[in-house]
Design a protein around this nucleic acid. Structure first.
Lengths: 215, 215
DNA sequence: TCCGTTTTGTTGCATTTGCAACATATATTG
DNA sequence: CAATATATGTTGCAAATGCAACAAAACGGA
């Protein structure tokens, strides 16, 4: 096992990694596209996951069967019920969009000093801190998006963000169906609104390509 | 200055605190209720704030003048543009609901090792990690709330959460006006929906007291 | 206490939205 | 290739929502 490429273990020697993996109760696992990494319905496992490779989606399904895309988890991201999406009663799962490699750490071991007092414990916490800061930012961005009142505003905010991130014209990184889940709006209503944006000359669409014309 | 009650400095001696405050570029400040702690419109200051005492609100005001309550910041919470609410272009400010005491730390100093290699640097990062985990949870909760499609669902989710947290009946911790901002819906529409919830016998209201009757 | 400000309650109305139901197109898989 | 599943485009309609406007109530200082 090569730890050096994993951001979480950055600056920690391989032998220290091995020590720590024991005291953190680390588990490595792999999943195929479409498989479920974990479910957060029942008993919390109190562990933190790090996505080493692949892409996955945190999805909530409510009583009515509505699916909501809570967040996209990408390479290097952390996830876990201890960190986010505390118990609201609904069924939540993490599903792989691609094949994924995952590490799990026991949350309680992270903040408490371990008995063996691994010398690199604190370095690992610092690394986790970085990952967490990244996540916090992306959650905050999500809130900014969802706090728009209308579908039109959500779409424009999303398009502007993607456009800024990728520089001008960009390709939608997901299907309409999924985008609707991401914006938390009805798909058909969203498509209707997209057409209006196009008619009003604010945004130009060419297949999955999007270009903002006017603010 | 007594550091011992501040969660951030938990487990760190007063003398180490003094050392660190220098290398972290720490600034202490106090604000009166109603005052603005900081604005995140223009140039990012790249610093992290910790609210030592008091309560404050992170508020966004968009071009149309709509105010959105992005998050409530309470005693011990951290805040800052580096951590959340990355640049979406809007004007964001943190306003005190009560008198507040605040510490600011330079973000870049946190993750980088300082030249003097303060021995307690890593302990402080671990403490920050805890604070951040708390924040991440609350942001995730917020996303769960905002991802409900209808005002009714948002209200019910909010009521259930508060009810669970405070055990049965509870008192609304904010005005209707502010709650509407928090749920990101129109106030009048929200009041209308509250009346419907009451009429439908799902929730009983008595002034600011709220009690859930049925799920 | 009085005055100005903020909050609350309410209503009408145009617009937006969710929802259900299709037909069609586009993968995906055996 | 055929068969099945999934995604897309579209529409009607009832319901929810945003918005504007206003009066009444509550609050907060001077």
């Amino acid at each position: 096992m090569d730890f050096s490429q994993i951001e979480l273990f950055d600056g920690i020697s391989a032998s220290s990694c091995r020590d720590m993996l024991i005291c953190f109760g680390a588990e490595f696992d792999s999943f195929r596209a479409g498989e479920t990494v974990c479910e957060y319905s029942d008993s919390p496992k109190r562990r933190v996951g790090i996505l080493r490779t692949g892409r996955a989606s945190m999805i909530r399904i409510d009583e009515s069967g509505n699916e909501t895309l809570l967040e996209e988890v990408e390479e290097g991201d952390i996830f876990g019920e201890v960190l986010c999406f505390g118990d609201g009663g609904d069924y939540i799962k993490l599903t792989c969009d691609e094949d994924c490699d995952v590490v799990f750490l026991k949350y309680d071991q992270i903040t408490k000093r371990c008995e063996k007092a691994c010398e690199h414990h604190s370095k690992l916490v610092a690394n986790l801190f970085e990952l967490m800061a990244k996540k916090t930012l992306s959650l905050g961005e999500r809130i900014q998006l969802l706090s728009r009142r209308t579908t039109r505003d959500k779409l424009m905010y999303y398009f502007r963000l993607e456009s800024a991130r990728r520089g001008g014209e960009f390709t939608l990184p997901m299907s309409h169906t999924r985008l609707a889940e991401y914006l938390c709006v009805d798909r058909s209503a969203m498509v209707r609104e997209i057409k209006r944006l196009s008619d009003d000359g604010l945004v130009a669409f060419d297949g999955k390509k999007v270009r903002i014309i006017a603010e």
